[in-house]
């Protein structure tokens, strides 16, 4: 799968295994180079790290505690069984996803800045395939999202979330799938935009809808039809559902397999769209 993406349809080269292996090895080094650059920049831009950790914490504690004190979402049969789960715990998986949404989509659309400062041009004039550039960036987005989420996961201990080794593995997989999907989305949008003005549009029309429609803040059981349809279309819904199941043991309206399946599908399809957008992207 990976090799197929990397090769990008250069089927004739696949016949020649030796040069092919060498080619893949070189592309992997280039991919590592692009990833490393993203990672280093992330580590140095401390304000970005602090800002994107603070907002989810604000939601978790202010909205979580505030609504939790007055709202009884759990009168429904589904939640009655486990009284240990308060509203704050209930929205915790959603807050993790929120952090992933913000980090990944913004990370992807930062490509507009790369273009603005001509850095992108210097990468595109190097002998590197567009697919490699895309994947290097996507992996960079996954890394930053995972680090951000890890900070929040630690906070989870404070509000009484229990982790097992198995649940940790699933949590990481879900976060990586979601962040690949959303970084791809951000990169796709960024690759089509010429100016920084579009950035605000992304915040209003992509980031917030993805978050609010994911059921991060409310159960999906008794929604009106229009809202229910919109939540079904939001890939984040499935990440929230899957995380809620592995963290809290709450089964939502979708099964775990269904959640993971849809996430995989979104990752593959948005990844493909992203690669295609990168190939078509104008260099200057």
């Amino acid at each position: 799968m990976m090799i197929m993406i990397l090769k990008g349809g250069l089927w004739k080269d696949m016949l020649n295994m030796e040069t092919n292996n060498k080619w893949i090895e070189l592309e992997l080094v280039k991919l590592y180079a692009i990833w490393l650059r993203e990672f280093k920049v992330f580590l140095r831009e401390k304000s970005r790290l602090i800002a994107s950790t603070f907002t989810p914490l604000l939601w978790l504690f202010v909205i979580g505690e505030g609504f939790g004190a007055t709202t009884d979402l759990f009168g429904t049969a589904r939640f009655a069984a486990d009284t240990n789960i308060g509203y704050q715990q209930f929205i915790f998986p959603g807050i993790i996803c929120m952090s992933v949404i913000f980090t990944s989509v913004f990370f992807g659309s930062y490509i507009i800045w790369d273009r603005k400062f001509d850095f992108l041009k210097s990468v595109m004039v190097a002998p590197v395939s567009r697919t490699t550039i895309f994947l290097g960036k996507a992996f960079g987005g996954m890394t930053t999202s995972l680090i951000q989420a890890a900070i929040l996961l630690i906070v989870g201990f404070v509000i009484g979330i229990h982790y097992t080794p198995l649940s940790m593995v699933f949590i990481v997989i879900i976060i990586l799938l979601l962040s690949f999907t959303l970084t791809s989305l951000g990169l796709t949008l960024g690759s089509h935009m010429e100016s920084l003005e579009g950035f605000q549009l992304i915040v209003s029309f992509v980031v917030f809808p993805l978050f609010f429609l994911s059921g991060a803040l409310f159960p999906l059981d008794n929604l009106p039809t229009w809202l229910s349809i919109l939540t079904t279309l939001d890939p984040v819904t499935y990440a929230v559902g899957a995380l809620r199941e592995v963290m809290l043991g709450i089964t939502g309206i979708n099964s775990f397999a269904m959640n993971i399946g849809v996430l995989l599908l979104s990752a593959v399809s948005l990844g493909t769209v992203g690669v295609l957008s990168f190939r078509r992207m104008r260099a200057v």
Partner: peptide
């Protein structure tokens, strides 16, 4: 680091 990055990109 910039030079290192490009030395990798240019193989």
């Amino acid at each position: 680091e910039n030079l290192k990055l490009h030395s990798l990109l240019y193989a």
